[in-house]
């Protein structure tokens, strides 16, 4: 994992921390409600949305659990994210009908000034729970490392790296964003 704290000068002040946290909570609520278009609008043009699949490697191995250029459930630019949303919106997306019930829980938010003005390195933890049909319940926990950019009166997401703990993904699909 990147220790982006090395770049950051100092933690943001309380008001800015509150605004960033509210942004993340709202983002989670949009995803819970399948408000895909509004969620996409939060992405910066140059977004890199990345969720590597961890590999089991010995500590001495040069290659670590999370590595760029390996397996990933998201390794997306803006167009890729749009395509995923395009599928969600199709009436023929059978795995979305009846709809999944989502709960995106966000916690442990830490925010630091990044090197560029108006950019912030933000760490958070998440719990994601999805329920589908009678008893299809899937539970995923992890961390996120974001680069947020001030935009108008709120923020845009420029980078997100999602670290899940599972090396075998224990669900048949991942039909949301994290």
């Amino acid at each position: 994992m990147n220790d982006n704290c090395a770049m950051a000068d100092a933690a943001v002040d309380m008001l800015l921390h509150h605004r960033i946290t509210q942004f993340l909570y709202r983002e989670a609520r949009l995803l819970d409600a399948e408000r895909w278009g509004e969620w996409l609008a939060l992405m910066a043009e140059d977004i890199h949305y990345w969720m590597p699949m961890p590999e089991n490697r010995r500590r001495a191995d040069r290659m670590k659990a999370y590595e760029a250029g390996r397996g990933a459930l998201f390794d997306d630019g803006l167009l890729d994210l749009h395509r995923r949303v395009a599928r969600f919106k199709q009436p023929s997306a059978w795995a979305e009908d009846p709809p999944t019930r989502h709960a995106h829980v966000v916690s442990g938010v830490e925010a630091f000034h990044a090197e560029a003005a108006g950019e912030y390195v933000v760490h958070s933890t998440f719990v994601n729970y999805r329920s589908r049909g009678e008893r299809d319940n899937d539970f995923l926990v992890g961390r996120r490392e974001d680069l947020l950019r001030a935009h108008a009166n709120e923020f845009r997401l420029a980078r997100r790296t999602i670290f899940i703990t599972q090396s075998v993904f224990l669900a048949k699909n991942l039909n949301t964003f994290l």
Partner: peptide, 9 residues
């Protein structure tokens, strides 16, 4: 790249 592993019931 790497291997992506998952479960389908």
């Amino acid at each position: 790249g790497g291997c992506v592993k998952s479960v389908i019931r």
